[in-house]
Design a binder for these strands. Structure first.
Lengths: 135, 135
DNA sequence: CTTGACCCTATAGTTGCTATAGACCGTATA
DNA sequence: TATACGGTCTATAGCAACTATAGGGTCAAG
């Protein structure tokens, strides 16, 4: 296990597409790496960790903007940790709101879907009727 | 109540932005309307209904592509209604999958968030630690 | 010495809009 | 009659978070 990586190594190790890593670099989320003689990007362990952090946060549904903030906060160990806590809480609230929305939506889709028993053509299909008029 | 509308009327009646209606037209989801002498778009009751249908489906989370399909199917009353049913079912399954994802995510955010009791700086904040390493 | 896997840049496409610029239309009021 | 206002028009660019494509350079193995 060397501690020098090329972009494809990082991609494999973090389950990220190569183009996505370059994209992260272009928006300033990943640092601009050194280049080899043949102009290949060269990364070290620190950048691998950075990318792992980013992907982990993505998996948790944070936006890239939130991740940039989290990364900035986490890099200074003397920063108060309240902001990280607040960011996490805010995000959780957003996720919970979205869950509530989707639950309401699923309920209505089930209600609508249940009405199509037996009918075989659009003319007597209750789904279309349900879609046509507000509940 | 006339049955002739301008784009702003449709916008008001369906809670849609004017630009959005033009966008729907540009992608072929709304029909190309007649024009007045002064080149204003002129709509009738049928187009109002079409837009209402679209917005109702959007509220239910269907993609514009799915809506185009639903609209095409619903316009021919002799079409078998099984496809509409299938589309609705597929969409419901997608929504349910997303709900499951978000629930798992919320659980983990709660778990992570609960670890930040008392700590005041990043150096001993468990949230960052939790974000740094896979669960 | 060529094949194949990898890397590079640059640009355009995706979804569902939203924002902006710059201009025209139509009516109500001063 | 002038002008201010609200509405409308076109065209273009921007948003998130990538993905896809074109057209090329690099490098080790067979």
């Amino acid at each position: 296990m060397s501690d020098v990586f090329r972009i494809g190594d990082l991609a494999r190790l973090t389950d990220t597409k190569v183009v996505t890593i370059r994209y992260y670099e272009s928006i300033g989320l990943m640092p601009v790496p050194e280049r080899s003689a043949s102009n290949y990007r060269v990364y070290g362990k620190a950048q691998l960790d950075r990318l792992r952090f980013i992907r982990r946060c993505r998996d948790l549904g944070f936006s890239l903007e939130q991740i940039a903030e989290l990364a900035a906060l986490s890099s200074d160990s003397r920063q108060p940790c309240g902001e990280v806590d607040a960011l996490t809480r805010t995000h959780l609230a957003e996720v919970e709101a979205k869950i509530a929305d989707l639950n309401a939506l699923a309920a209505e889709l089930r209600r609508i879907g249940a009405q199509c028993h037996g009918s075989t053509t659009i003319s007597n299909c209750r789904i279309i009727e349900a879609l046509d008029h507000r509940p």
